[in-house]
Nucleic acid binder design. Structure first.
Lengths: 213, 213
DNA sequence: TGTACATCAGTGAACGCGCGTTCACTGATGTAC
DNA sequence: TGTACATCAGTGAACGCGCGTTCACTGATGTAC
């Protein structure tokens, strides 16, 4: 056997430990722990390096927090992309949005849980970073909505209004689903149905909306 | 001067320290701190008693957490009561709901901030207590909605569906307002307007809803 | 009204523990020649 | 291809600190007589 593959690579992982720190932190936060309550020593213990090793990758916990925000939003953005490529009728669009949401939640549980809990969490740095990202997502959604035929007459203010209502409803649904998913597939289906109904009810009002009343 | 009023009551406050602990904790959490990251010693230091004094009032921090949930929901429930006594038309009801919401947020900032941040926070005990209370509030709202003339034909499932959509939208609005309020009165007005628009858009869809499609 | 006593909120010393951060170090990997 | 060297991820001892919790205590308040 060659020394290349047989030797355990205890030292000099050259670049992948940073990602392991991020992934491990997200996993650890997907339970009864908040970022505010996660200690550097706990994290490095879990990863398998000595506490001081942390400083090779991040100057402090705040910097790790920002990396977690980046990681978590990567998957949330994919949902928007999925939906963007779907040019079907409003009615089928609704089912498509919810399906995409659930698929990404299943694949990236920890990331969604992190956004949900740290959006109003104890670390100001993390909290503000999440809000900034959510505002960007809302703007992207408003732009996407403007392309829909039954919304092309709407002005920017109204588009942002409906984008925020939809985003809030979907974030709330996502969190409910997160909570129930995995251990209760039946409950998950019920919540998906409810999320679809929320979207439909919102869209039902759209044709009757009068701007600047 | 009588000894009754002149003497500093350093010892044996007989019953009010518990409430001071609750109020102080809520105030401390209305900033850059999560319940998970609040220490017993910090809290007692702020209140002005020795750390061990805490145990005279609560067996542990979890018990304090539950008391905080109780306190915080007391004011949220008052909003429902306010709105319940308002039997005006749907259109005026919307403005009334939002006004009541903003008034209670101003009066009980810390309580709302606590519910918002600990709803997905690190302490399982607190998190579950908050969710239980929110579910109760949702049910109460569904019952109230059933009394409205244009909703009296709706079945229970649909009423719960719309109740959860409204509650989610209002909680999201409350949190946005919390964040901006006090330091930006103009921003607050804009958010109030948006909250009203959200409610109106939801209600616009209601007459066109077809149950169990 | 006065007195003896139970109650109970608050005290302060003490404990062992996990924390973040410093520092000088080791030794494997990648690169320049 | 071989060698010398810079880079850099991980090490481990050490530090001072704030933490939750224990314990036996003090002394003011409220109550029974």
């Amino acid at each position: 056997m060659s020394t290349r593959t047989s030797k355990p690579r205890r030292l000099s992982r050259r670049g992948d430990t940073r990602q392991i720190l991020v992934d491990t932190a997200l996993t650890m936060l997907d339970g009864d722990k908040s970022f505010d309550g996660l200690s550097l020593r706990e994290l490095t213990r879990e990863v398998g390096i000595v506490p001081t090793g942390f400083y090779r990758h991040f100057p402090d916990m705040d910097a790790l927090g920002l990396a977690l925000v980046d990681e978590a939003f990567r998957s949330l953005r994919k949902i928007l992309e999925d939906v963007r490529q779907d040019t079907r009728s409003a009615d089928r669009l609704v089912a498509s949005v919810v399906k995409s949401l659930v698929r990404h939640i299943r694949a990236h549980r920890a990331g969604f849980a992190f956004i949900a809990s740290e959006r109003f969490g104890g670390s100001a740095v993390v909290r503000n970073a999440i809000r900034r990202e959510l505002r960007l997502v809302q703007t992207e959604l408003a732009v996407d909505l403007a392309r829909l035929p039954y919304l092309k007459e709407w002005n920017t203010t109204d588009l942002h209004m409906i984008a925020s209502l939809i985003l809030n409803a979907m974030v709330a649904s996502a969190i409910d689903i997160l909570d129930v998913s995995a251990r209760d597939r039946e409950g998950e289906t019920a919540l998906m149905k409810r999320a679809e109904q929320h979207l439909r009810l919102i869209l039902l009002g759209v044709p009757h909306w009068q701007s600047e009343r």
